[in-house]
Design a binder for these strands. Structure first.
Lengths: 338, 338
DNA sequence: CTGAAAGCGCTAACAA
DNA sequence: TTGTTAGCGCTTTCAG
């Protein structure tokens, strides 16, 4: 493995000169620069980022911690974040973590390793304690992330998200306005401190506001999965027990797609025999038949707004804020008025 | 920022003892271990991986370079790789790269930073030169990755993939056997040295083998995108020019889904007016209506086989091999016999 | 413009 | 079982 020492020797200069060339410093003679560059080129030398990170204080690196890569609309958010950050002169370094990893931990580690100026957490849980959160000492914002289940003091963190409960309420209301009263819900969990719970609460609220009694037997749950196949199985199983509903509210597009297959297989056409609505607005749901009616997340705005909040904090223009972005209704063909 | 030096001082031990505790070494007294652990806990100390990486020679770390995170079936491959690696006692570290990044470069960098024993490249291009490939000096395998367009010497690399051309041939043949003769193709590009070209060639071969003349006006292209919306637009545009086909072969499930919407919008029911088949077998295509007929990639096997090849090389059990895995036909409702 | 030398935080001999 | 110390590859003063 070549080091700058080797390069220095081969180019007949000192390591500091090599380092200067590597970092595009101006104080190197053209002659030296040329020679060093040639040697680097010839030997395919790659400087060790590990060693650099250890030394360098990186003044403009922002970390992005993403939970789960399966989530289709994260791609758009990430793109938006990356370009907003780049535009502002910052560098983004992203880390994916697994579904059950602790993102605060990951953030703390990354902050240390990369000497970050700030962190954006994308799509995390919302039940961290102030002590846990305190482990990350640089400014951070929680993107696509609501704390309505949590117990955090609003002044202790920043976040950008939709209001999951409102979106769900709006979605269910859409169904009600189309004349539906017997409305089933497909959720992941109802008391799991996740987005599922919030959206479930929106469902309950919509019913309440329209004086429709909540019927527990119409609330179907996958357990805790948001996966399309689990939604399918949950729905399939539910349909053997009850069919006493004319519409279904699914807490996510993906789950709606799984549920729609189960409905069809049980002989219920969409939207003729059952209307379906969901939340998220992932790409594919716009291409299936019938096109899924859904409340879309403002993907790009979630990203750009997160960056804006973070940079405000870093550059001292403002403190903690919670920003709620509106969802937009995408009419589909999956709803029928009755 | 705390360092092990601080921890050592606070725990009244030397840095080496702290280091030993950090690395779960046996040669530490329970008393010291307890004290060190307590201090670490109390101060939320996180050791610097940067510093560790610089020093440590990591005897069992395998790198995984993934191009593009949008690809839905990569998730399954990655899971398979990770668990196979873990099972064999190796640690996986994954790096995502953008669509236009150079993965060999990324591999070379990662190899240096993480002191890798081997690398798996997932879903890359296939047109690297031997000189470029030579930059990675540890064993590597190219997963889900065919070289049929490339010019590499088979003895110079290992790979695991399906045969894209055969899969496409089989798919189109499926259509032919159902009685179709006027078969359109939706591709990304026909001479772009990617999977698209290989699958396009399979399409041509199927026609040739069945004495069906290739009609260029039935080959629709998105340019170079595999995105669902671009497939939709390409198909939408194509349908204003010609409708003289009874079946469509799309080179990817995603693209098929986009195309199906365009077909419907142009009044062509699936499969009654037009049959559709594709390649990949992504999750969602099994849930749409009609269920998409497709040739599925053996996702898990692609992962496990890649690990097997790599470990064989690392542990000296074998040299370079190219493994071709079979696809499996998933009958859908998107084909009609005529 | 250039080089010598002091670390960055950690691990791994080597001694004790 | 423990501590001392020499680096890992690089950047960065500080002198020249």
């Amino acid at each position: 493995m070549l080091t700058i020492k080797d390069i220095a020797r081969l180019a007949n200069v000192s390591v500091s000169t090599v380092s200067r060339v590597l970092n595009d410093r101006p104080d190197v003679s053209e002659e030296s620069r040329r020679r060093v560059r040639a040697v680097i080129e010839e030997h395919h030398f790659i400087p060790s980022n590990t060693a650099r990170d250890l030394v360098r204080v990186n003044p403009d690196t922002i970390g992005l911690i993403v939970r789960g890569m399966q989530n289709p609309f994260y791609t758009d958010i990430i793109l938006a974040i990356e370009s907003a950050l780049e535009h502002a002169g910052y560098t983004m370094v992203m880390r994916q973590i697994g579904f059950s990893d602790n993102e605060i931990e990951a953030g703390a580690v990354m902050q240390r390793e990369k000497k970050l100026r700030g962190i954006i957490f994308l799509g995390g849980r919302s039940d961290y304690s102030p002590e846990e959160l305190a482990r990350v000492s640089v400014p951070y914002v929680l993107c696509s992330y609501t704390n309505a289940c949590g117990t955090l003091d609003k002044s202790a963190y920043s976040s950008v998200s939709i209001c999951d409960e409102d979106a769900a309420r709006d979605a269910v209301e859409q169904l009600i306005e189309s004349g539906h009263r017997r409305i089933a819900a497909l959720v992941a969990g109802t008391d799991d401190s996740t987005i599922s719970q919030l959206r479930y609460e929106g469902y309950c609220r919509a019913l309440r506001e329209h004086n429709i009694p909540l019927r527990e037997e119409l609330v179907f749950t996958t357990g805790d999965s948001f996966a399309i196949e689990d939604a399918y199985h949950a729905m399939d199983e539910a349909l053997t027990r009850t069919t006493d509903f004319t519409a279904l509210f699914a807490i996510a597009d993906d789950m709606a797609i799984g549920a729609m297959r189960a409905l069809r297989e049980h002989g219920r056409a969409i939207p003729d025999d059952c209307s379906v609505i969901a939340i998220d607005g992932i790409a594919v749901s716009e291409y299936i038949h019938p096109m899924l009616a859904t409340f879309c997340q403002p993907k790009t705005e979630l990203g750009t707004k997160s960056v804006e909040l973070l940079l405000d904090m870093i550059e001292g223009r403002g403190g903690h804020r919670q920003v709620i972005l509106p969802t937009t209704f995408r009419a589909g063909a999956s709803i029928r008025s009755i």
